[in-house]
């Protein structure tokens, strides 16, 4: 068997990167019901707009995972794309976690918005939430803030083809001393299925924070011009 663990950091391929500035280190954790458990550090690449991008892949003989995360550590928000293939002969449970450090932790009540989209393909396949759990979680400073696609969520493809599902939520988080923001995907995937999640979370700055963010955006724009 050709068992290989391959982690591809964003900077590693082709050497065509010109935007890399070096940057924040995020943590990418993947665990499966088949006993796989791996935690790896991903170095973020600074993008021109001030956000960071992290990307990592895992390839095994029974599954593959690819994660891309784009976040703004100074104005907490994160976008993610996670792709998973169950190449085994049985249903598998996955827990995929990415933690982004915050450079400027805040301490206030913040409104948040979150949404997640799932695209499932294969032959007679299904994606389902684990019992008493949700598929999409956002933890702010260790507190489970957003939970979308809750149990008994299920997405099915009958015959060959594709299917999609979408969920969104909003609320207020009391942000205390937290120094990181993490997203977590927990789900069961039937054999032969491929799923791609696209999810986002953002906090909506309070009036004072909004003024600071607006000022930063104005300065960035001015610098560009």
């Amino acid at each position: 068997m050709n068992t290989r663990l391959h982690t591809t950091l964003a900077l590693a391929i082709l050497g065509v990167t010109s935007v890399a500035q070096g940057g924040l280190v995020g943590t990418f954790d993947v665990a499966t019901s088949n006993g796989y458990n791996e935690s790896m550090s991903l170095t973020g690449v600074a993008l021109p707009d001030g956000t960071y991008l992290w990307s990592g892949q895992i390839t095994q003989n029974d599954f593959t995972t690819s994660g891309t995360f784009i976040g703004s550590p100074d104005a907490p928000g994160i976008a993610s794309v996670v792709q998973v293939v169950n190449g085994s002969d049985d249903a598998m449970a996955f827990t995929i976690d990415f933690t982004m450090p915050l450079t400027n932790p805040v301490a206030e009540n913040l409104a948040w918005e979150s949404s997640v989209y799932a695209s499932l393909t294969g032959l007679d396949v299904s994606l389902s939430a684990l019992i008493a759990d949700s598929i999409w979680h956002v933890d702010v400073a260790g507190e489970d803030t957003a939970a979308l696609m809750p149990y008994p969520f299920e997405l099915v493809v009958d015959g060959h083809g594709a299917n999609t599902a979408y969920d969104e939520g909003s609320g207020v988080v009391s942000w205390a001393d937290g120094e990181d923001l993490s997203i977590r995907l927990s789900f069961e995937l039937s054999p032969g299925a491929t799923v791609m999640f696209n999810g986002g979370f953002t906090t909506i700055p309070a009036p004072a924070g909004l003024a600071i963010v607006s000022g930063m955006l104005w300065m960035r724009r001015k610098r560009r011009h």
């Binding site: 050709n2 068992t3 290989r4 391959h6 591809t8 964003a10 900077l11 391929i13 082709l14 065509v16 990167t17 010109s18 935007v19 890399a20 690449v45 991008l53 990307s55 892949q57 895992i58 390839t59 095994q60 003989n61 029974d62 599954f63 593959t64 995972t65 690819s66 891309t68 794309v81 792709q83 998973v84 293939v85 190449g87 085994s88 002969d89 054999p191 032969g192 491929t194 791609m196």
Partner: peptide
């Protein structure tokens, strides 16, 4: 990128590339 022959007989490829003005990641089976 990386690839593997999966237990179900399929082959999966994953990876990502940074261009000058873009980033792409893929999973192809």
């Amino acid at each position: 990128g990386a690839w593997a022959e999966l237990d179900d007989g399929s082959t999966a490829f994953t990876g990502n590339i940074f261009g000058e003005s873009w980033h792409v990641s893929w999973t192809t089976v």
